[in-house]
Design a protein around this nucleic acid. Structure first.
Length: 827
RNA sequence: GCCGGAGUGGCGAAAUUGGGUAGACGCACGGGACUUAAAAUCCCGGGGGUCGAAAGGCCCGUGCCGGUUCGACUCCGGCCUCCGGCACCA
């Protein structure tokens, strides 16, 4: 019965049987040998899987299946990041309610995931747009509000005109909206924030403990948090009652500060303007800078603009008067929004001073001499030792100088040591319908009042219309907006902002343990046993968004004593993106729907079957690296599966006569088998399925050759073939399950133990010994494993390829690596 | 500028974990077998240079220069290029 390999008839059958037997379901309440595997969950608004995304899930599934075969109780749940702008934008365009649109897309994606043979524990499935999920976003928000971790403030925020909502800093990439690519505007708005800056130090410290995270992700997070040590120093302005604090990382250069510069947005600017004869000029300058786009303002090539306010501050170290300027390069959000200008030792200050003719006062000199301000062409930031600096004179430039300066400043009461961060608080308000309503009520009498726990969830209303230009549809829903104040029973107005979808994803990994629990957000006992997630698989694009927020919220939950966990994801794997030619640009780009260079797995599955698509996706290259998609390469995977199929057919119909007669424990094929088990096991542990597949291709060929040459017994051939099926199962589950059953085995291959290898048998009995003369390969010897040095040298001298190189010469030394290499050093 | 990662055949890559035959495995290509023919399948070949009729030999070769070593893709020092993150962040 040498039938053709027909994926179309095999695959649906096994997908059905896996589903009927609920093979992926795990009881999270019963202790066991837990392994928690998680894929970053898909965004159903994107609606369709393409092979670029598929890599995530296929890799995850292969890892999951292998863990199951290794005997671990492995949890592999799937959830949907179901809120978000695409669904609402689709509603505006087509009139379909976002819920309908989202649920339809979930159904469609689920079909696609199943058609690839991906096994998820669907009993734990969740979608963040369900009230049973988002009510806990609201509950968490209220707990954070109580602790001052959720708060409202008016600030200059990022506004995306395309999405008609504000964005978090993390969602602005190069001045553009991460999702719509529109240029982001700055607007002053009152918004809700999470105080992630309170956790900056813990988030940074935790990175040190994440030894199984990719270095580049940790680097990105460190850069994003942007810690810098320095000092806050107060500068007195004669016209103002309050001194102006300034943050600097170089307090050691304080004696060289020759001007003070404020951000035009600095709160003191209005007071200065009011008391100045140049009021109009100041206001005009402030207006001009504020109109400038943030992108231009932060561009390095940007010209430094400034305005002399006419006011004078005192350098706290020298007591000398220095001018107070407004400068566009001083950013309002960083530090204190004000700087001390040290032109001699800071490049930006230098450029500013040169442009506006401000004095330059060096405080560092070298043995060669002092810096001459008149001929300097650039600032000299790290050089020599201090002078011109009172009692600090003579201190060499470096951390010691900074430490001395901070001590002195603190003693004199001029300021204090301080650590600055680049990280800003997380802006979570969104002016959109399709998200978690923020549980707050505005009351004329009581102010902003939290919704009581008993009134949760605050549900999204149904009586809404999606028009787009008119703004957030929630504002138009009377049922939603009009309410009573929980505090005074008077008239209240519900908050109409909804939460950023990243709030949903920052704790979902915990919810898979009790997805239907109506009493509490987190099951602490199960979390104690299952957390942290052992293996997280996802794309690099979440390096500072989702992964930073999730680490933050995990710490908040720890402080709320809901979990005893500082880091949610023990081991992170970022698979590289799949790239493809973009017909529009002619370039190789990341495969994505918006670029129009996607390849649908559906068509490939229809042509070659899911196993081929899976195999090829894993075979294409190392998973952590970017890989270019190639349609031609797929046939190689298809051919291999056909060969496996043919081999199984032959084994299935084999008679004793067809096989060799020798039946021994130690045969060449047995040794090959054990070597292959070792290779595949080790490769799978580091996710290198591409080399594991290469090993299986060699193994397949070895079995087929043994078959042809009748050199192995029937039992050996059958066992080798079954081992091939087991090792191949994580990659090509359907074909292997089918043959596992046809060869008379029960039950699911998925539930069959992963094969073990005998280290002794995993080595060949004869080895090729490489013979070098003076480090150059001159010949090869085929010897018994474990041959001793003297015998090897004797063999080498007699070998006709090697003899000419050693004849008549003195062997001064022989380097012998048993079973590998013999190097003869001759003179 | 600071930080992180990477440079190997026509292409994707392997060997880098403990220094030990560089190019496994696959794609594409060339040749052969089977076939009336084609497809499919199977087998063989291949880094570059050079000597040879051939078998085969020699030299060079993992971004560049140098070092350590019997021996370096692998370790060390110095560069170059590319990719990614941060960046007027005081």
């Amino acid at each position: 019965m040498n039938d053709r390999y027909d994926a179309a008839s095999i695959e649906p059958k096994w997908q059905r049987r896996w589903a009927e037997d609920h093979v992926a379901e795990v009881d999270t309440s019963i202790p066991g040998n837990e392994f928690y595997m998680l894929n970053m969950y898909p965004y159903p608004s994107a609606s369709r899987l393409h092979v670029g995304h598929g890599r995530n899930y296929i890799l995850g599934d292969a890892l999951y299946r292998r863990e199951r075969m290794a005997g671990r109780k492995a949890l592999n749940p799937m959830g949907w990041d179901a809120f978000g702008l695409p669904a609402e934008n689709a509603a505006i365009q087509s009139g379909v309610h976002p819920r309908e649109y989202t649920l339809a897309n979930i159904a469609r994606m689920k079909e696609q995931l199943e058609s690839l043979g991906l096994l998820y524990d669907w009993s734990k499935e969740l979608a963040s747009c369900e009230p049973s999920y988002y009510r806990w976003n609201q509950w968490l928000f209220l707990r954070m509000w109580e602790r001052g971790l959720a708060y409202r403030k008016t600030a200059a925020v990022n506004w995306c005109p395309g999405c008609r909502t504000v964005l978090a800093n993390e969602q602005v990439v190069n001045g553009r909206c991460e999702r719509s690519d529109d240029l982001v505007e700055i607007r002053d708005l009152t918004q809700w924030f999470f105080r992630v800056t309170d956790y900056a130090e813990r988030l940074l410290a935790g990175l040190e403990t994440l030894t199984d995270w990719p270095e580049r992700v940790k680097t990105m997070q460190r850069n994003w948090i942007g810690r810098s040590e320095g000092a806050e120093i107060s500068f007195r302005i004669e016209a103002l009652a309050e001194p102006i604090p300034v943050f600097t990382t170089r307090p050691d250069t304080l004696f060289g500060a020759t001007f003070l510069a404020l951000a035009p947005e600095h709160p003191a600017v209005a007071q200065l303007a009011a008391r100045s004869g140049k009021r109009a000029a100041i206001e005009q300058f402030v207006e001009k800078v504020r109109r400038e786009s943030r992108l231009d303002r932060e561009a390095e090539s940007g010209v430094k603009e400034g305005l002399d306010t006419g006011f004078v501050a005192l350098n706290p170290a020298t007591g000398e008067p220095i001018p107070v300027w407004l400068a566009n390069f001083v950013l309002p959000e960083y530090g204190t929004g004000a700087i001390m200008g040290v032109p001699a030792h800071d490049q930006r200050d230098f450029e500013f001073a040169r442009r506006f003719g401000l004095p330059i006062r060096p405080v560092y000199r070298t043995e060669e001499g002092e810096l001459d301000p008149d001929v300097m062409t650039a600032a000299v930031p790290h050089v020599g030792f201090l002078y011109n600096s009172g009692e600090w004179n003579g201190t060499p430039c470096g951390p010691e100088a900074v430490r001395r300066a901070v001590e002195w400043i603190e003693q004199k009461g001029l300021g204090k040591g301080k650590i600055g961060y680049r990280l800003r608080d997380w802006l979570i308000s969104r002016q959109r319908y399709w998200g978690t309503p923020i549980p707050a009520i505005h009351c004329r009498e009581c102010g902003v009042v939290p919704v009581p726990d008993d009134d949760l969830p605050v549900l999204l209303p149904e009586d809404v219309e999606f028009r787009g230009a008119e703004g957030n549809p929630l504002e138009k829903s009377r049922d939603f907006v009009e309410t009573t104040c929980p505090s005074c029973d008077g008239e209240g107005r519900r908050e109409t902002d909804t939460m950023d979808t990243f709030v949903d994803s920052s704790w979902y990994y915990l919810r898979f343990l009790n997805p239907h629990d109506e009493k509490r957000m987190v099951d602490s006992e199960r979390a104690e046993r299952w957390m942290p997630v052992d293996q997280y698989v996802g794309g690099i694009e979440h390096a500072i968004l989702h992964l930073l927020y999730a680490r933050f919220v995990c710490r908040v939950l720890k402080d709320l004593r809901l979990v005893n966990l500082e880091e949610p994801f023990e081991r992170l794997f970022n698979q590289g993106m799949i790239t493809n030619l973009n017909p529009a640009t002619g370039k190789i780009e990341k495969m994505s729907k918006s670029r129009g260079n996607t390849v649908s797995p559906d068509e490939l599955i229809a042509r070659f079957g899911a196993d081929t698509v899976r195999l090829y996706t894993l075979f294409i290259g190392p998973p952590e690296k970017e890989s270019e998609w190639s349609e031609e390469g797929v046939v190689g995977a298809f051919r291999f599966l056909n060969r496996v199929h043919d081999l199984c057919c032959r084994v299935h119909t084999m008679t004793r006569e067809a096989a060799g007669q020798r039946d021994a424990a130690d045969t060449p094929l047995t040794r090959f088998e054990h070597r292959t088990i070792r290779r595949v096991t080790e490769d799978a542990e580091r996710f290198h399925f591409h080399t594991a597949v290469a090993a299986l291709m060699e193994f397949q060929r070895a079995i087929a050759e043994a078959f042809d040459s009748r050199s192995e017994a029937e039992e050996t051939l059958v066992r080798a073939t079954k081992t091939l099926l087991k090792l191949l199962h994580p990659v090509a589950p359907h074909l292997t399950e089918e043959w596992w059953e046809r060869l008379g085995e029960r039950p699911f291959l998925l539930e069959t133990p992963w094969p073990k290898f005998d280290p002794e048998l995993a080595m060949t009995s004869r080895v090729t010994l490489v013979v070098q003369v003076n480090g150059r390969v001159r010949g090869k010897l085929d010897v018994e494993r474990g041959e001793d040095e003297a015998a090897a040298v004797a063999l080498a001298r007699r070998n006709e390829k090697i003899r000419p190189w050693v004849e008549g010469k003195e062997i001064t030394r022989a380097v012998y690596v048993p079973d590998r290499l013999l190097n003869l050093v001759v003179r």
